[in-house]
Design a protein around this nucleic acid. Structure first.
Lengths: 153, 153
DNA sequence: ATATAAAAAGAATTATATTCATATTATTTA
DNA sequence: TAAATAATATGAATATAATTCTTTTTATAT
C-alpha cells in the first residue's frame, strides 16, 4: 500500500492519541470527516494500523506478575530444588513446573515495578542455574483456585 | 489508587481495543455508560491509563529511518572516515555528524524492516568503531531540505 | 480528449458521548 | 447499630460524533 502525506498525518495523530475524533483529524487536514473515516478504514483493512491500545501505568496496578523462568538445559530435568528455592520467597504466590522452553511459571505479587526489580535482583539472582526470566502483568484473573480462601462463618 | 474488578475489566478491554465504545464496555459489565465514562475519566486523571495509541505495522510504511550511531569514544573525534563509509551505502540518504553521545544521524530508506535488518547486519557491521545504533521510524516529514529536488520545467 | 476509477464533499441518519438530577450503595463516625 | 456522609450508579435529555449515501471533484488510464 502506498501511503501519502494525508495517511502519514493520520497515522501520526492516531499514534499520539488513538481516541482522537474523525472531526479533529479532518480539521487538522482540512477535509471532510467522511473522507478521513474512509482512509482510516482502509488503513485498518490493509493492516497498516494493527491495533488500538491503551497504555497502562504498571505502577498503578497492584502488580500480580507471572514470571516464566527457564534453566540451563543440563539442569532442567531435576528442577525440584530450584522450585523449592522459588517457593521460599515471600512475594512468590505460586510456583508451577511447566513443559516447554521455560521450566517454571511463578506468580509474584509486589507493590510496584521497582520492588519487582529489586526482587529479581536480590532473590531470583541468588538461585543457581536460572537462564532467563520473562515477566508479564496480570490485569485480571477470571478464574482462580480459591482453595486457600477459607470463608468466614 | 485502588483498582477493583470493574476497573481491571475496563483496562483489559481498552488495552485490547482502545477505540471500544463506552456502551460496549457498559454492556460487558452490565452497567450504565455514564458510570463507565466516569471510571475511565478517573483512570485517565490518576494516570493509570497513560496513553491511547494506534499500533502501526512498520512494514506497511515505506520505511524512512533515522539511525543514531555512536562510536567508541577514543575514535569519536576523527569521525570523517566513518561518515564517508556510511555515505557510500546506497540506502543511506543523509549523514549528519552530530554533537552529544551519538556521533551521527543517518537517514535510511528501505522497503521493509527485514531489509533494514539485513542492511544493519551486512553494511553497518563492516564499518569499524561503531559502538551502537538506535533506529526510529520517520512517520512524517513536516519540513525537508529539497535543494536536490530540481523541479521539471 | 474521453472514459473509468478513486477519492472527497456534504447532507441526512444513526449511534455514541456527555451532562445532570436523582437514586442507590458503601463508608464513616457518633 | 443507626444516622450522616461520601462515593458511585442510574436514567433521561442533550450535545457531539460516526456512519451512510448520493453527488461532485479529482486523478488515472485509454
Amino acid at each position: 500500500m502506498t501511503l501519502d502525506k494525508i495517511d502519514l498525518t493520520i497515522l501520526r495523530l492516531m499514534q499520539e492519541n488513538s481516541r482522537i475524533s474523525n472531526i479533529h483529524i479532518a480539521k487538522e487536514l482540512n477535509m471532510a470527516p467522511s473522507a478521513v473515516l474512509e482512509r482510516v478504514k482502509k488503513l485498518e483493512q490493509k493492516n497498516v494500523i494493527t491495533q488500538y491500545s491503551a497504555k497502562i501505568n504498571p505502577n498503578a496496578v497492584d502488580l500480580k506478575l507471572l514470571a516464566f523462568i527457564s534453566m540451563k538445559s543440563s539442569q532442567s530435568l531435576g528442577c525440584t530444588t530450584t522450585a523449592d528455592e522459588l517457593a521460599k520467597i515471600k512475594e512468590v504466590q505460586e510456583v508451577h513446573v511447566i513443559a516447554g522452553d521455560d521450566c517454571f511459571l511463578v506468580k509474584v505479587r509486589t507493590a510496584d515495578s521497582a520492588s519487582l526489580m529489586e526482587l529479581m535482583r536480590s532473590s531470583f539472582s541468588k538461585i543457581p542455574n536460572i537462564l532467563s526470566i520473562k515477566t508479564t502483568i496480570v490485569l485480571e484473573t477470571v478464574k482462580e483456585d480459591q482453595s486457600l480462601n477459607i470463608p468466614e462463618l
